[in-house]
Write a protein that binds this DNA or RNA. Structure first.
Lengths: 192, 192
DNA sequence: CTCGTGTGAGACATTGATGTCTCATTCGGC
DNA sequence: GCCGAATGAGACATCAATGTCTCACACGAG
């Protein structure tokens, strides 16, 4: 096995562990390293080999979530087309990291790290800008603030990810459920 | 000072502590007893005098949240009038306990206690029934499930409470923001 | 003023999770 | 079959939070 192949294999494992960790930590932040390890199908020792410690795991979650979400934004091309369509694309692209985003939104007081906060602030700004654009274009309602839309977006993403995890919403319906509910709620209604 | 007056005073303190605890724990479940105490303006010793321990505090939060939310449901008279109006009343009545509800929704894996879960299950059932009634009456859309509406309801309540806590949404706008967004998202649109 | 209650500050032992270690085993490539 | 890398299981010390305690002080009622 080549060196790069080994690295690739480990990378896949990291992703799986991070997703499982996010799912558990979202609903019980006190989940122990041992429980996370078992949920990911590995031992605590191995978990410690992949992530130096609990803090390192959380930070990896944050970095991973921010990076993947930023990537989703790029792919969704938020500036193109009308805002509702862009929002649909964003939700579709963000779906794979929904669990991680839910965790990060929920537990956003873990670190006062400036770098992490800066990363989040930029993502927030980009989303809020999208909502504001929709308002300026007349697509989104004006009686609610763009900041609230942003918070609601995160809240629905988190609730959706958990619903899928609990089997209350089908995975294939997640994107549709979030997008339709959010868009219906923020769209400027026609008759006004 | 009479005995009942003392009890009443302590009850007020408890409520304040619980609200503060919910606000903090929602965004950092590992918040220590000491931090909670200081946020509530009391010492750790006093906190322990009011609540036997951390578990007792969490349980008190759950019981308080369930009781107050059930009370909000009763006051809102979910069975009367059309479903959208009932939902508005529910959101308005639930606003004072929004922070607690957000915490309970977020950290719902803390105890496997049968009694607590039973309490939640009943509340869930009542809300879901409301959404289902709205669907049957033709007020709410049918392409999304009532179960998802329920989860979204909790998610928006939590996001809203946090937004107010962070100063991103005015307290007086909270009810309106949640109700309008949720109702807009779940209403059956007219043109279909 | 005096008493009683509630509180704040701090000391202390306990506990559970954490982080580090070793050793035996498994697995895949050769 | 052999070998190296990765893993699982477990032992162990460490540490932070917890829970319990004592003591001194503030404050309101009488």
């Amino acid at each position: 096995m080549s060196h790069s192949a080994i690295l690739r294999l480990m990378a896949v494992d990291r992703e799986r562990v991070l997703k499982e960790a996010a799912a558990l930590l979202t609903r019980r932040a006190s989940t122990s390293m041992d429980e996370i390890a078992r949920a990911a199908g590995i031992s605590r020792a191995t978990l410690h080999r992949h992530f130096a410690g609990r803090d390192a795991l959380i930070r990896a979650l944050e970095e991973h979530g921010i990076a993947r979400f930023a990537q989703a934004m790029d792919t969704a091309r938020l500036d193109e087309g009308d805002a509702p369509a862009a929002l649909r694309r964003l939700i579709r692209e963000a779906e794979p990291v929904a669990a991680v985003l839910g965790f990060l939104f929920t537990e956003n007081q873990l670190f006062e790290d400036g770098e992490i906060n800066a990363g989040w602030a930029e993502l927030d700004a980009r989303i809020t800008a999208l909502f504001r654009r929709g308002q300026e274009d007349g697509d989104f309602r004006l009686d609610l603030s763009a900041a609230w839309f942003t918070e609601a977006f995160y809240g629905l993403i988190g609730a959706g990810a958990w619903s899928v995890h609990e089997g209350r919403v089908a995975r294939n319906d997640l994107t549709h459920s979030i997008a339709e509910l959010l868009l219906g709620g923020i769209r400027r209604s026609m008759e006004k």
